[in-house]
């Protein structure tokens, strides 16, 4: 079975001044029916990749194939297969909630009665029925985003793109949206989601590509990415003093796999063998160790190991 999305040495340089090379040769394959996370910091090129897949950004080089259609040579046809939840609220402010859904269906060629039925079905399914006559400006951020998801799948696309779907949402709306995205998987819709929240990518994605500086650094399941760190446990050291030289000391401790800079100190990846914690504390003591946290590795750990910097800076 051909993949739902295939990106082939995709590149994008925005015309300047100054010209910006946002995406530098991305190769990716997203399988049909999977939820795929594109994880990276702001400015990594995630939105540009989504823009190119959804016909809104023209690649400078390379190819983007969605559902076996080249999105550059046949954008009008490719749009039938894709739904887009943009990063910002792009709801039609001159139309009601219901009309946003209804006219979207009309743009995709559904007849009047069909469009009405589909709009009502979506209102019910997304629990927006009691707001059907409201204008988008009256909706909270969470409801507006829910309506954008409903609108994006109104024409029953095979692939749904969500660009930073939970940015700016309160925790409750965020959880509600996660549930919706998980619902897409159950319906067999392929989902490509960009995020800079590692927990979001970890929780929702079947597979994740970590992207930085316009390049894909790694691509695998979240579990495999974390496993490949070779770290059973991560120790976050908070240090009050300068810690020059401490990383070298720590690397001598048996069981320490990797030492990288973390927020306010160092991040130590270990194989969690017995007695290791005490040795680390002992080594770090002279560097005014203030606090130490023991945790499971996360995708952020992976990101820090790959790039040497924190995901959100």
């Amino acid at each position: 079975m051909s993949p739902a999305i295939r990106l082939d040495r995709l590149e994008k340089e925005y015309r300047g001044p100054p010209p910006v090379k946002a995406v530098r040769g991305v190769d990716l394959e997203v399988r049909r029916g999977e939820v795929f996370g594109l994880l990276g910091p702001n400015g990594a090129g995630k939105s540009t990749v989504v823009g190119m897949c959804t016909t809104q950004v023209l690649p400078t080089a390379g190819r983007a194939i969605v559902e076996d259609l080249d999105v550059v040579t046949d954008p009008a046809r490719a749009r039938r297969c894709i739904g887009v939840v943009p990063q910002y609220n792009t709801l039609d402010r001159a139309c009601t909630v219901r009309e946003n859904l209804y006219y979207h269906c009309r743009y995709f060629g559904l007849a009047r009665a069909e469009s009405q039925a589909r709009a009502d079905e979506l209102l019910e399914q997304f629990q927006l029925g009691d707001r059907a006559g409201a204008m988008p400006a009256q909706l909270s951020g969470g409801l507006a985003q829910r309506l954008q998801v409903a609108r994006a799948i109104a024409h029953r696309p095979a692939v749904l793109f969500l660009d930073e779907p939970t940015a700016g949402l309160d925790p409750q709306s965020r959880l509600a949206l996660w549930a919706l995205i998980e619902g897409m998987r159950d319906r067999g819709i392929t989902v490509l989601l960009t995020t800079h929240y590692m927990d979001e990518a970890d929780r929702l994605s079947d597979r994740v590509a970590i992207i930085d500086g316009g390049k894909v650094l790694v691509c695998d399941t979240p579990a495999a990415l974390k496993r490949d760190l070779g770290a059973g446990t991560v120790l976050d050291l908070q240090l009050d003093g300068a810690h020059d030289g401490l990383d070298a000391v720590l690397r001598q401790v048996p069981g320490v796999r990797e030492v990288t800079a973390g927020a306010g100190g160092l991040q130590v990846m270990t194989d969690s063998r017995e007695g290791l914690l005490a040795r680390v504390v002992e080594a770090a003591g002279p560097y005014r160790l203030r606090d130490l946290a023991v945790r499971e590795p996360t995708l952020e750990t992976v990101f820090i190991k790959l790039t040497g910097k924190a995901l959100r800076d």
């Binding site: 809104q56 009008a76 039938r80 609220n89 792009t90 709801l91 039609d92 979207h104 743009y107």
Partner: peptide, 15 residues
């Protein structure tokens, strides 16, 4: 400002 034309840009027709 609002980019609200985006949904119409994404309609399955040429730009």
């Amino acid at each position: 400002g609002t980019r609200e034309i985006e949904d119409r840009i994404l309609a399955p027709v040429p730009n």
